[in-house]
């Protein structure tokens, strides 16, 4: 039982660490600020989620588990809000997304 938990925990932590690094590499490689938000999105969901799952498997049923769950839920609720505020500020500040194709229906650029 303990061995199975250890293996699962290892798998979760390695997956989470790999996704953290992939997200960070994406932040380096992707071309503009709007694309880089997708890289940060990977860290904020899969990276932190899998690492916290790995830590949770090493914990029994106690207050520590509740705290881990709270950290995860809190990050999942706040990170889209922060990303959206940043995207809005970037558009407000005059950064336009680099596009491969033109938008299907151009909206007004008056900083909604």
């Amino acid at each position: 039982m303990a061995l199975a938990l250890d293996i699962l925990s290892w798998a979760a932590i390695i997956t989470g660490g790999a996704f953290c690094i992939i997200g960070a590499v994406g932040m380096i490689r992707l071309p503009d600020v709007f694309c880089r938000m997708h890289g940060v999105g990977i860290i904020d969901t899969m990276g932190i989620g899998m690492i916290i799952l790995g830590l949770a498997l090493q914990t029994g049923f106690n207050l520590t588990l509740a705290k881990l769950a709270m950290i995860l839920i809190f990050v999942l609720f706040t990170s889209p809000t922060a990303t959206h505020a940043l995207a809005r500020a970037a558009r407000y500040g005059g950064v336009e997304p680099q596009l491969d194709k033109p938008a299907k229906k151009e909206t007004d650029q008056s900083n909604t």
């Binding site: 953290c20 997200g23 960070a24 932040m27 600020v33 880089r36 938000m37 890289g39 940060v40 860290i43 904020d44 990276g47 932190i48 690492i51 916290i52 830590l55 881990l68 950290i71 990050v75 990170s79 922060a82 990303t83 940043l86 500020a89 970037a90 500040g93 950064v95």
Partner: peptide
Amino acid sequence: PTVYDRILAVNAFGTLTVILIAV
């Protein structure tokens, strides 16, 4: 290059710090 890239990077850095403290 823009200030928004820097804010984004610092935001991700903060999330990673949360993980690092927990670990």
